[in-house]
């Protein structure tokens, strides 16, 4: 038996909206630890890792480890019928091929349930090594969204360079070049507005802006985003999910031909 109840159901809606552009079908892996998902986009350029810890749920029952295979476009259609303030319950029998979504309005005057057919998806797990990154930047997620959007008007790729001066986002296109420099800015009364740059080594990597823009669909999950970079690793763009876990996007850099 698998049954979990999430009071802040909007988190689930936001997570699915943030990843469904990159991944069509995915397994949600359920264990006593919580719900997790790991999936690559079809071209194996980006990897998504989601964790929702069991203690973030009001009720969490998972009798044995199960993988629930689902089509994310269908999950999105179903979650769109839930109100933003609804409490969401997910349940599945051990050997069933259906996942039941139950949506309860906050004052319990509307309760709906929808059964969704599950899919058998061959899951491929990648080992993500723990790494000490050369540069870690924490900045307002809205600011990162704006930078990615603005640079997309000029070019297709972004060079992210971290030096002791700050972090520079640069692009080149047919109409010209653009640079945006963000410096460390610790706003003590508003920590969410801070930009904090921790650098062990200067690092500069090039990425496809199309993917970065896709990652920023997670902006509403968290007021800040953490970007971790090392010269020999994919970049990590992490949105924390309030007291429950995280949604991380890994993106392979562009390399010199």
């Amino acid at each position: 038996m698998f049954e979990v109840r999430l009071v802040q159901g909007s988190l689930l809606k936001k997570v699915v909206e943030a990843i469904r552009e990159l991944v069509t079908d995915a397994n949600i892996d359920c264990s006593s630890t919580g719900l997790s998902l790991q999936a690559m986009d079809s071209s194996h350029v980006a990897l998504i890792a989601l964790l929702l810890r069991s203690d973030g749920f009001e009720h969490f029952r998972c009798d044995r480890n199960v993988s629930i295979g689902m089509n994310l476009a269908n999950v999105s259609k179903i979650l769109r019928t839930a109100g933003n303030d609804d409490i969401i319950t997910l349940k599945a029998d051990d050997d069933g091929d259906l996942l039941t979504f139950m949506f309860e309005s906050p004052n319990q005057d509307r309760i709906s349930d929808i059964e969704m057919k599950l899919m058998d998806i061959k899951s491929e797990h990648l080992g993500i090594p723990d790494a000490e990154y050369e540069a870690v930047i924490k900045m307002p997620s809205q600011e990162f969204l704006r930078i990615c959007k603005d640079l997309s008007n000029i070019g297709d790729t972004v060079v992210i360079s971290v030096t002791k001066e700050g972090v520079k986002f640069s692009t080149r296109g047919d109409i010209g070049n653009a640079n945006i420099v963000c410096r460390q800015n610790t706003t003590l009364d508003k920590p969410d507005d801070s930009t904090i740059i921790q650098m062990k080594e200067p690092v500069s990597l090039t990425f496809a802006l199309r993917y970065m823009n896709s990652f920023t669909k997670a902006t509403s999950l968290s007021s800040s985003v953490t970007i971790s970079m090392s010269s020999d690793l994919p970049i990590v763009v992490e949105y924390k999910i309030a007291d429950m876990g995280y949604l991380r996007f890994y993106l392979a850099p562009k390399i010199e031909d």
Binding site: I128, A208, P234, A252, I255
Partner: peptide, 14 residues
């Protein structure tokens, strides 16, 4: 132009 890297060249299947 730079070539797009692949996640599988950084992280291995387990």
């Amino acid at each position: 132009d730079n070539k797009q890297g692949n996640i599988l060249s950084f992280f291995k299947k387990v």
